[in-house]
Design a binder for these strands. Structure first.
Lengths: 239, 239
DNA sequence: TTGACTTATATGTCTAGACATATAATCGTA
DNA sequence: TACGATTATATGTCTAGACATATAAGTCAA
């Protein structure tokens, strides 16, 4: 047993030391951090060790490295935040509430002009259009309107969406994808109000999500949440 | 002039090759990627070069490295997205529209119980409470209600918020911070409707942002946008 | 079958060098 | 003064090793 506390590796200590100076504001944006050779002298290690620490800080956008000039503290990237968007079933069960799912309708059809527009494709063959409702402890939680491009996900034609929500099914059947979310607010119309069991005119949060994988559109979905009960939480670091 | 295209460095090529296999789905989540020594043999380079490529993929959460077992494709982290939240002035000017700013009121006071609650602190000394309006081409764009903790940002007591929006001022005077955003929807009450020039009952998008720096609360702000005209866009990669 | 011990192995970290390359700074010239 | 060439230097990448360490897998005993 050693008296010394469990020490992180040297490069992690170097990285942490520098990170601390940046995060406390001691080294403001634009500040030049010590040259590699200075850190080598200070920590008594090889340049590769210092380089690894600085490379990771650069990869994390905390510093900018310029040849011949040195490494500089970057100004915070205040325009980005990490928004947690969980799978609805996982979200509800994580809250310890009973998840309920109900398929409202499912239609297989040749893509209409409106479908193509929604999916952002010029031409599409067949699509599946799904409407469903998610509930937590039997209380309506969200309404989902989804379109799946069957030319990208042919298996979706035969999937049983009466038991498994399409979002969960897609997560397990379609690998790595990219997505774009658009968040807005509306007031509930009659149909929405009925489905969510809220008054007409009540505020709703709308998430439009458009998902693709390497230039192939997969699905477009609109999620409607009661605006006063649902919250999206985003956290970020930096400015 | 060389015939060969401008080649990236070897470790970048290795990283890109592996990334491609993951992103195309060729190597699904859980798939074991080749051992370092296999990649060393395949690319004819030293282990450090391969290690650098794999370390970066691990840092980007694309793979998981397990001692003795190997490196594995991680299952996509579908619960997070990058939400772009620009400084309002920057956002409006980026759209090529004329930015307008108007201070509605500014009060310096000892923190009330409600203020402390909003800032999430047990005790606070003085605070500045600010209400202001942002507009684009003279059309109301957003209403801002802000509280600044003067014990964290004493300079805010004397800053001239009649000319510069508090958000921009803070960005330039307070370094690296962390924040949490909560997004919800409401319908406009009378005061909000008047300030945003929209009908009472119209949908509004609400962003509550709470900002701190290393455990010190800095500011809490509520932004109200007309829900049908404003959109938050978030993009993400993975699942 | 289970648990404890041993071993093999893949990754984690590090060294002391090397050469490449972009560019800030200097110097020289028009 | 302005511009172009040169030089110095910090970072970028890479090598061929080394030892550390966590752990999967195999071994053996209870």
């Amino acid at each position: 047993m050693s008296l010394a506390a469990d020490q992180p590796t040297l490069y992690k200590r170097i990285r942490a030391d520098i990170e601390k100076c940046i995060l406390t504001g001691e080294w403001p944006p634009g500040h030049r951090i010590p040259f590699e050779h200075e850190l080598v002298a200070r920590y008594g290690c090889s340049r590769m060790t210092v380089n690894k620490a600085l490379s990771e800080l650069a990869q994390a956008d905390l510093i900018e490295r310029r040849r011949r000039a040195g490494s500089f503290v970057r100004r915070p990237q205040h325009q980005s935040a990490v928004l947690k968007i969980a799978d609805i079933r996982a979200e509800i069960t994580a809250l310890g509430r009973a998840y309920g799912y109900e398929l409202i309708h499912r239609r297989l059809r040749a893509a209409t002009a409106a479908d193509r527009d929604r999916l952002g494709v010029r031409k599409a063959g067949k699509v599946v259009a799904i409407s469903c409702r998610h509930s937590a402890d039997k209380v309506p939680f969200a309404i989902e309107d989804r379109l799946i491009d069957l030319s990208s996900v042919p298996d979706a034609a035969t999937a049983d969406f009466s038991r498994e929500p399409p979002g969960s099914w897609l997560l397990h059947h379609v690998p790595w994808t990219e997505a774009e979310h658009t968040i807005s607010a509306i007031v509930a119309d009659e149909r929405t109000a009925g489905a969510l069991a809220i008054p007409v005119g009540a505020p709703c949060l709308v998430i439009d999500r458009y998902t693709w994988r390497s230039a192939r559109t997969i699905t477009a979905v609109r999620l409607l949440y009661p605006g006063d009960s649902h919250r999206l939480v985003a956290r970020f670091k930096g400015g």
